[in-house]
Design a protein around this nucleic acid. Structure first.
Lengths: 240, 240
DNA sequence: AACATTTTAATTGTAGACAAAGATAATTAT
DNA sequence: ATAATTATCTTTGTCTACAATTAAAATGTT
């Protein structure tokens, strides 16, 4: 309420990103402009600008005269993800090791600290967000404006998939998370050492670990992705 | 003037894309909201939505309280482009050959017809746009939402670079363009035949041809990219 | 009672007016 | 005359109100 307008707006933007990444706003959910505008203390025009930007970043999809929808997960999502992820992750990690700057490495270490803390405390959303931030920083390090768009897109769904499959009662995943955190430490070391080949190789290993976790959940049961609700049918509000 | 509002808006969006791709709006140029709003017969709020979307698509960059700037070309542009382009183009072309649908192939052929026509008639802008569309359709065929973001980003600058280096008085480029058009025909054949390896291989060859053209112009003289004008200095209007 | 049609309500899209921030011009002091 | 400060103007950012479109409800018809 006492914030400057632009702060409220950027806060709204980052918070909507957060809510989509953590599945607080679920894939396929429809967003209500007036409700969100009130919630973030801004009027509809600036909110609509934010929705357009989120659409450009592929967090949401806009439908003519029928509002904004959180980007749905389709049956093709996982298959396409498996094709693109290792290629982009490896390429970005390689470039990050070549181009990383000390200030960026510091931010990476800070994020890793928060990542481990979230694992310790069993905070699924925070863990997913810090993992996303970790890899987004590696993307910044790569400093290649032609690869970051796909990396960002991958991270959106990778984070959401990670939230979907999160199951604190399943003990085997605890080991998986510990190993993932250890690999993050290795990323930091390799990037600091400028070891491009090592970073690319680690990216593949890191990917394979994540892939194994995903496949373990996908294989036995049919995928429980939300299919996007068609616009003409009854629309569920995401922020109810 | 007699158009329905939403038509005016989508027309504005696509026309701004066109003007940026053809360098009618040059890299680094600043855009005037009121001027553009008048030009396209809409008010500022919807125009600002469009600018946000274009920012999300990386056509332009927004600066807090100092307006929208056409995405600048920096000294790193070409280097990063050379790293990312062959990888993305090859991957996308491979997937296109695997997944292309007949209706898409038809659109590809139509675009190719327009592409050859533009070459014949020496229409540089139209040629650049039809080349962009051709490769964007291949991107659609690939049907992988994680690769298209980077492909789109590459095509923006590839198209702009093509316009920059376009020189109708230089005869050697005529051969280059003919060969590029022939390769487009080969793309169509390979995609229709579902030859993934062939399409990926052709993508590399197509890239090498383009790369050679670019390097021929870059080598002798220093790059004549526009560096983005810093916001605090006097700002040139793009649509003057 | 089921279906089609009309009426009502809710939501999205747009416009014009106002507020705030930044850049430029003018003024004053040294 | 030059530099700093103030004032003006331009441009961006936001809000409220209105228009248009779509979804839902109600009414009427077969």
């Amino acid at each position: 309420m006492t914030e400057r307008p632009s702060n409220k707006k950027s806060n709204c933007l980052s918070d909507l990103r957060r809510r989509i990444l953590t599945q607080d706003l679920e894939p396929g959910a429809y967003l209500d402009e007036v409700q969100l505008a009130e919630e973030y203390g801004i009027s509809r025009p600036p909110l609509r600008e934010i929705l357009r930007q989120l659409a450009g970043e592929d967090y949401i999809v806009l439908h003519q005269n029928r509002g904004a929808q959180v980007a749905p997960m389709t049956h093709k999502t996982l298959r396409n993800f498996f094709v693109a992820a290792p290629m982009i992750y490896a390429a970005v990690s390689r470039l990050a090791a070549e181009n990383a700057r000390p200030a960026q490495v510091m931010r990476l270490k800070d994020t890793q600290t928060l990542f481990r803390k979230a694992i310790r405390e069993g905070d699924a959303a925070e863990r997913a967000l810090m993992n996303e931030r970790f890899h987004a920083i590696i993307g910044e390090m790569a400093d290649n404006e032609y690869l970051t768009p796909s990396l960002r897109r991958l991270l959106i769904d990778h984070t959401r998939i990670g939230m979907t499959f999160y199951n604190p009662s399943f003990g085997a995943l605890a080991d998986q998370r510990t190993e993932a955190a250890d690999q993050h430490d290795q990323f930091i070391e390799l990037i600091e050492a400028g070891d491009a080949d090592g970073a690319a190789k680690l990216a593949i290993a890191h990917w394979e670990l994540s892939r194994a976790e995903i496949e373990r959940f996908v294989s036995p049961t049919p995928m429980h992705f939300e299919l996007g609700t068609p616009p003409s049918k009854k629309r569920e509000k995401g922020a109810s």
